[in-house]
Amino acid sequence: MRAGLSELEDCFKRYSWDLYSYGLCLCRQTDIVDDAIHDVFVDIHANAAAFSRAYDKKRYLMASVRNKIYHRLNDRRVNQNVDISDIDIESPGQADDDIIGRETMLMDVEIVKEMVSSLNIRQREILYLRFNEGKSFKEISRIMRVQPQSAQNLFQRTLAKLKRLLVEGKIAVEK
């Protein structure tokens, strides 16, 4: 069974922004996200059975994109996210005198981006599912295939790290 193209296009229009954001959150490389979303939709077009059975279309799409991206990242020679969590980045922006005294709310976007980059893939994923999708820990544990308690723990650890980074960033900005 194949999905009609117009049906697919509606679906794409509706979810592609969120799917892309999710993909970028996972791997931050547009080419991989492009390919993943492309393949997910082309797969659905070729065989729509599973998709049409799916009750929650968005969840289905997110899971598919996630699978493709993880698959691709594993194919790569280096899992670029393996060790990054253990590297504490130096407070960025210290050398930049221009940003001294700026309001903390107006923190340099680049600095924040860098902070987010310094989280590893699972840390970014759990924050995304929590903060951008508003998922409960039970839902997150299903998506990330961990025990609910592990999801909680991962979240708390990640949050602590994010806050630490934000504080460091804040110091750098306000200094």
Partner: peptide, 13 residues
């Protein structure tokens, strides 16, 4: 603020 900054740090499509 954490929520806000997290979203600022995300890449946008």
């Amino acid at each position: 603020l954490v929520l806000y900054r997290w979203k600022v740090g995300l890449l946008q499509p």
